[in-house]
Design a protein around this nucleic acid. Structure first.
Lengths: 339, 339
DNA sequence: CCGTTTACTGTAACCGGTTACATTATGTCA
DNA sequence: TGACATAATGTAACCGGTTACAGTAAACGG
């Protein structure tokens, strides 16, 4: 009679209902028929015992955690709210739980990531929250992984979901050149080695080339997808007697915010003196002053799509190898439209 | 030799290192001395077997999941990014995992919440993502719970962490009246039964009373802490030949955005015709047009504090019963300051 | 030199579920 | 009516860890 744990187990339910644990388990999981009489008794017993199955025990027995993991770089940016939201929607709809963790590159020294094969059934990996090596290891184990905003390493062809970066950026630069007659367009690049950042840069260069505008490396500044950094770098650029410029493509909306501030603080009018275009279409950018022309990235949908792909793998279906969600330029005042 | 699972277990490690499973377990958990020779051998073996302990098995044996749960209402609002971020920081620092789930009141019909005693060691409950009844049940079981932006039911005195709502709102209204001479102040209330919403309303009424301004119920509109709803309701209010008003306290920044738009679309100038004050200080509000006067709520810190309190309970220390984090008015242009 | 710690290790019984296999009762069909 | 499928249930062996208990060898104290 010495009960070690205070929690009520499946054996308690079985005893009180006068059946075996196997029957209880079957009824709970609805995977084998149970007589109506027994079913009713079980409902009653489970009701007053307030029985809740122990997740760890179930995971252990079934070799399935019923949990998927989302690995992020950090969660400070507003960008992650819609991403998590999209992922969570699909995950909960599938009856799974969502484990969220961050993995900054700095802490990745030989330490195994906080989530992985040992505690989830699949992993959503944002950008470089894991390095190629770690992704390869998961791939080797055939562990379900979907990459977000990052393409797969050559030796580990796992599915990925990202957004169209290059074409949208190119069209944005085209727009600045063709519609607004800008030719000295500053590009604020994102973090090095970040793929979004890379492809946006490629799009920028492609557009310049299309229009026969020579690339000037003084017109490329680091914005790091962060408003403070973008602000500081642009301000310094302007104050230290800068190369003239008549437009800025900021690489992302966060940086765009810093850019708008820096321009305001240095007395430049947007869009008259300098046209500005961002990327992401964060929820509040239409209310900025002036409203920000930007590229809409369907971040919520990225989250949903990635989660859906992951479940395809888990359910032994064939996932798409790469999904590139379309982006769309949202013309507002900061580029000179709607003035 | 018929291995059922392909995964490498502690027994594999034990066999390859020529020791017992108990020794391996002790070495992994560093909870009993192990000879240097054995330690070295284990490091080597675990290295090439790429052994990773199975979380579920460990949880089952230790009766501890090493996971805490965060229960939210929904994650669409930018408000949740800093909250999750703050929680995650503390949780990961403690070596725990974070399970995130949403529980909309509509889905709460007799269904047990997705996270709870069965799969976490403690729960952070945001606002009314659980009802009094459910909180009481957890309290009865002595299950660690900390409430966020919500106070405890009388029969379940669990700790809570929230922000100062009433005083800050009162000071905001005082400011509108005393500094800017406004007397017809519209109040956009939040969701019914939401505590933040309730206390902000109380603060509003208190300030009116202090200044001998009679409350008019036509000056109270529903904003629901959502920009679209606030926009629609205010616009309708104005267009249907409204009671005149010279200021709006919007209850939250999301609603404030809708309010600013509605005012712009109906040709009212902010702050000349109508002063506006929000609540939360979302990251982008200083860049709105005009920059939004608002009350800064330290949401990231709320997350960190709540997580820290939860760990106090888990670690058998005594938590604070209620923590009310201070808020602060941030004066910008929308109320008439800094013009 | 002997009794007593102390350091290290092993055996096996848990933790709370699932499920392969066996068993019984009932219904179906030739 | 006998052979056989089917429904409903039970027994017990897992899943992969932890840890109580026990044992051995070396160190220590008097």
């Amino acid at each position: 009679m010495t009960r070690r744990s205070t929690s009520v187990t499946i054996r308690d339910v079985a005893r009180n209902a006068g059946v075996s644990v196997a029957t209880v388990s079957r009824y709970i999981n609805r995977n084998a028929p149970v007589s109506d009489a027994v079913a009713a008794r079980l409902d009653a017993v489970m009701g007053d015992l307030k029985y809740a199955p122990h997740a760890a025990a179930r995971s252990l027995a079934m070799r399935r955690t019923q949990t998927i993991g989302l690995l992020l770089l950090n969660m400070h940016r507003d960008f992650f709210a819609p991403l998590i939201s999209g992922v969570e929607a699909i995950v909960s709809q599938k009856g799974y739980n969502l484990l969220v963790a961050t993995s900054r590159p700095s802490m990745r020294k030989n330490v195994q990531p906080p989530i992985g094969a040992h505690n989830t059934d699949g992993l959503l990996v944002f950008a470089d929250s894991l390095d190629d090596e770690q992704i390869y290891r998961l791939y080797q184990k055939k562990f379900p992984v979907v990459l977000i905003h990052r393409t797969a390493p050559k030796n580990a062809p796992v599915p990925s979901v990202t957004v169209e970066n290059k074409a949208a950026t190119r069209k944005s630069i085209d727009h600045l050149i063709e519609v607004h007659g800008r030719r000295r367009i500053l590009f604020m690049r994102g973090p090095a080695h970040q793929e979004d950042s890379y492809w946006r840069e490629v799009g920028y260069l492609a557009s310049l080339e299309d229009h026969g505008i020579p690339f000037e490396d003084t017109l490329m500044l680091s914005g790091e997808f962060e408003s403070e950094i973008a602000y500081a770098n642009l301000k310094k650029f302007i104050e230290t007697g800068a190369t003239p410029f008549d437009a800025v493509f900021t690489g992302d909306d966060d940086a765009a915010i810093g850019v708008l501030e820096a321009l305001k603080d240095t007395g430049k009018r947007v869009p008259e003196d300098v046209a500005v275009i961002g990327f992401d279409d964060l929820r509040l950018t239409s209310f900025l002053n002036p409203p920000l022309t930007t590229v809409r990235a369907p971040t919520d949908e990225v989250g949903r799509t990635a989660a859906a792909q992951l479940f395809r793998i888990i359910d032994k279906q064939v996932p798409e190898s790469t999904i590139l969600l379309p982006t769309e330029i949202i013309l507002r005042r900061s580029c000179g439209c709607q003035s």
